[in-house]
Amino acid sequence: MSEGITDQRDLPEAAAQSRASVLRSRAESYIALSRHDAAIADLTESIALVPDNARAWRLRGESHRIIDRYDAAIADFGESLKLEPDSSYALGSRGQAYAALGRLEEAMADFEHALTLSPESLWILEAKADALVDLDRLDEALDLHAGIIALNEDLSYSWLARGDLYQRMGLYTEAIADYSSALEADPEYVRAYSRRGEAYRMIDRYEDALQDLNRAVELDPDNDRALGSRGAVLSEMGDNEAALKDLNRAIELDADYVWAYRVRGEIFQELDRHEEAVSDFSRALNLEFGDE
């Protein structure tokens, strides 16, 4: 039941419909405020009052998905789809939940069905591309990203997403070009600066990398990934003191940042600070592989 409510089972039908409608509307605001447990409580009562409302099931499924309750999300989207079989939103969101659980073939089936209904839905196309990557169907994913970009070349995220795939494939020049296109679309896109800086680092263009990572940190001083990458670049450039400062801060921001522990451990090793190096390497092994 929702806040302050005890039992509404005996409400007349018209009152039940009215109450359920307000609960659904309030739940949407809770979702916008990222108060997903409150949204789920409202939607649970709304569903108890009016079980045949597809929107309530769909909204509750989305709240479950956002807070990583994927099995509950899949169940709710399934109920929504019984009522509205051609909801591309429910299909796309259920596909995302399947993908998060590694059930990639089921995810692909939902994405394919959703795209027959909404063929230019960018978020579903992006989700399908991610699933193709997870299936190691990289060429298909690249083709899909090209199609996504063609739909709207002014969307910075679409360029960044393909850049990330190029970087995963070790195609750093292509990745840099896409990150640059993302920055043309959005000159203050922190992630694009951070990722392009990392791509520059991978091809030993340290000055370019540092320039991008400095800009990323300037725009977002608490960006742990940009700080970690900048620490690695500074170490490559021989400034271990500044590198350690960045890596220390990155780890403060994210105590589970495996790569930062590994890089900091290598710097400690280079400085003959082996106890600290052992501690960082051990922490990295614990986080990544569960070593004690």
Rank of each mutant, 00 (worst) to 15 (best):
E275I: 02
L101R: 15
L287K: 08
D10T: 15
W159Y: 12
L11T: 11
G231R: 07
I267N: 00
L227Y: 07
G231F: 02
A15L: 14
N53I: 03
Y200K: 11
D254I: 02
I176C: 03
D291E: 15
K128Y: 00
L49N: 12
A277Q: 06
G231V: 03
A72Y: 06
L183E: 13
R195N: 14
L271Q: 11
A175Q: 05
W259V: 10
A48C: 05
I149T: 09
S282H: 03
D37I: 02
S194P: 07
M237W: 00
V217F: 04
V278H: 06
Y200M: 07
R24Y: 00
D246I: 00
I5F: 04
A141G: 08
V133M: 06
L23D: 03
E252S: 12
A141V: 02
D186P: 06
F281H: 10
R283Q: 14
L213N: 05
S93A: 14
Q167E: 15
L210N: 09
Y157G: 08
M237T: 14
E198H: 11
V217M: 09
L43R: 08
N152M: 05
S181D: 10
A73Y: 01
D110H: 10
R26S: 13
G102D: 15
Y30N: 14
S229W: 07
T173C: 02
A199C: 10
L287A: 13
D71F: 00
E79N: 13
E79Y: 03
L59W: 04
H113V: 00
E79G: 05
D7F: 01
L104K: 07
R264H: 05
P119Q: 11
R137N: 08
A114F: 04
A129H: 06
E174Y: 00
E275W: 00
W159I: 02
R137F: 00
P221E: 02
M108R: 03
S93Q: 10
Y166I: 04
A56R: 04
P221K: 12
A250D: 11
Y166K: 08
W259A: 14
E120N: 15
D254Q: 13
R58C: 13
H274C: 08
S180E: 11
R201L: 02
L135T: 06
